[in-house]
């Protein structure tokens, strides 16, 4: 073995030591915190929202029809709010939020602090899309 080969071996060894030490130091300095994420299924809100739109309230109106009508009709909007309250009470909903995005305006009622909304689409008489966002929080022990 030549003296130059010994130098190469020493260099290789030093490089490996640096690689290992560098990894260890880096992992110590930049330790990533573990994030605990709870997976929630939340399918009760989706089913509720879909059925909410299809519900016929006590005066015989469908919620989806009232939503469409409410764009330019304040009376229909008041009926919609009353009908919604009726459904929410029946379905053991503690808090709710309904946001309706018409092509030009937005109407909403209920609370306004929901992390997750279920989005549903309706079409008005002019085939323009209305986006309905529903957020609900059920009473403890119901769902």
């Amino acid at each position: 073995m030549f003296p130059s080969d010994v130098k190469d071996l020493i260099t290789a060894f030093v490089l490996i030591v640096i690689l290992v030490a560098g990894s260890a130091i880096y992992q110590t300095l930049y330790k990533t915190d573990e994030v605990l994420k709870e997976i929630k299924i939340n399918d009760e809100q989706d089913l509720f929202s879909l059925n909410y739109l299809k519900t016929k309230i006590s005066d015989g109106s469908l919620i989806s029809e009232l939503i469409i009508e409410s764009e330019n009709n304040d009376g229909a909007f008041e009926t919609l709010k009353d009908g919604t309250e009726e459904i929410m009470n029946f379905a053991f909903v503690e808090e709710y939020s309904v946001i309706i995005l018409y092509p030009t305006i937005e109407k909403k009622f209920g609370e306004d602090n929901f992390e997750r909304y279920t989005e549903l689409k309706l079409f008005d008489k002019d085939e323009e899309m209305i986006l309905v966002k529903v957020g609900v929080r059920f009473k403890e022990g119901w769902v």
């Binding site: 640096i18 560098g22 880096y26 990533t32 605990l36 994420k37």
Partner: peptide, 26 residues
């Protein structure tokens, strides 16, 4: 070579930080 390896090591580990998933799903 040593300087190169130091930079290379840190570059690789810095990339790993973005790739690694420390999220625990429950």
């Amino acid at each position: 070579y040593i300087i190169f390896l130091i930079l290379f090591t840190f570059a690789v580990l810095y990339s790993v930080k973005f790739i690694e998933d420390k999220e625990v799903r429950r």
